[in-house]
Design a protein around this nucleic acid. Structure first.
Lengths: 225, 225
DNA sequence: TCCTAAACAATAGTATTACTATCATTAAAT
DNA sequence: ATTTAATGATAGTAATACTATTGTTTAGGA
């Protein structure tokens, strides 16, 4: 398995964490800790203690913990897009490509040996629990101008293109896809914490699989001519 | 126009803010300030200054600002449910009732004279920008046990019941409705801040109307037999 | 090999936040 | 007139989110 490195927008960090040992430790450990503590209780002080470094050192990589979160989420969407590109390559039928993309988006993630310093499984839980916080802020517009959300936007566009290929007359491909991408993690959260909001059941096997079936049907019916 | 008061779960507050002058000022001013500053920059200290009171006094009404936010959002969903109940009363056709409910959920809110101390228009913006933060926390399960999210859950159930009445064989009425309720504010946020994620355009007239059309079509196609 | 600069550690310090505690004052109910 | 509930005034604390400074290690280039 080839070792790869995702090329991320340099505005996401002050110093590239993929380039140094300390940087990789920051990524690795922050994923663990945000998953465990939640974003609110997570601090650079606790992180620095855990990796036996200092607050000041971490601030050389990321302006603050919000930026670090944005970085992690951006990494996730870029990773997903790379995997979709890989798996849909040479698949001619847009219907098949859409199904593959949706499966990759919704499925439960296990760790990807291509990126050994990232716990994709924990990162998926972070996306479920925290990703909306990346843009639900007063600085969303300036963050967006810096290109911090490009990962999510290009992923949305790529899948919307498949929908448009299937039915060029459907007027809401982007709205539909962004709605579905949101639901891809929201419904899992609901199944786990607010179960009356969804039919998906954690006890009945894989919630991600149930969500895949729900969303595939939804996207197909909605975009049908 | 009759003056009404929504009966909210008493776990939402320490002292009922609807009962006193100070309480109503807290609600009124916090809506203004959270809308303006965003939840992160909003503090009880600033609020107390603005209404010429003290931090300590506000803490007698709400445990903390998270609880205050949950209260405001709960008020909003309860208000919406009341309006849906009112407007769908005596409407026999479930298809019509669904359309009415969706219109009420999606439409741009102007101020409701029935509740003079609440700026519903500002509150709608708060729902758009902050409501997901009510449950995206580590305490979501204990908050849920206290019934803090009942407003949203009963609204979802009420609309899901309409969907089920239209097509009893559709297996995902709750999942569909919770997805649509989320999209009802998410798509507006996207149109305003991340416009590449949606076809809705702020410049082309009323985003809320565009969203209504998108979501009505979505919910109808998705739940069709 | 020595030197230089970059990276990191160690430490200290600040303003703000999110509270809690205490006591005094006012207003409303009995 | 008296009690009591609500509010105001004030103070204080621990934690957070940083910034600044200085010293130490280390790795690469001359």
């Amino acid at each position: 398995m080839a070792l790869l490195r995702l090329e991320l927008n340099s505005n996401l960090f002050l110093r590239d964490p993929q380039e140094t040992d300390l940087g990789r430790k920051i990524i690795d450990q922050s994923i663990r800790m945000i998953d465990e503590l939640g974003l609110e209780a997570f601090t650079f002080k606790k992180l620095s203690k855990a990796i036996d470094s200092t607050e000041a050192s971490i601030y050389r990589y990321f302006e603050n913990k919000h930026r670090l979160l944005v970085y992690l989420i951006a990494w996730y969407w870029n990773w997903l897009e790379y995997r979709i590109e890989f798996e849909t390559h040479n698949v001619a039928s847009p219907t098949d490509r859409l199904a593959i993309a949706l499966r990759l988006v919704t499925e439960h993630k296990s760790n990807d040996a291509t990126f050994p310093s990232v716990d994709e499984s924990a990162l998926q839980r972070i996306v479920t629990n925290e990703s909306d916080k990346t843009y639900l802020t007063k600085q969303v517009d300036s963050d967006n101008k810096e290109g911090l959300f490009r990962g999510f936007k290009t992923l949305c566009k790529r899948i919307a293109d498949m929908v448009e290929e299937i039915n060029p007359s459907y007027a809401y491909s982007h709205a539909l896809v962004s709605t579905v991408l949101q639901a891809a993690h929201q419904q899992v959260f609901f199944a786990e914490h607010l179960p009356s909001l969804t039919e998906h059941k954690v006890v009945k096997g894989d919630v991600h699989q149930q969500n895949y079936e729900f969303l595939l049907e939804l996207i197909q019916k909605a975009s049908k001519a």
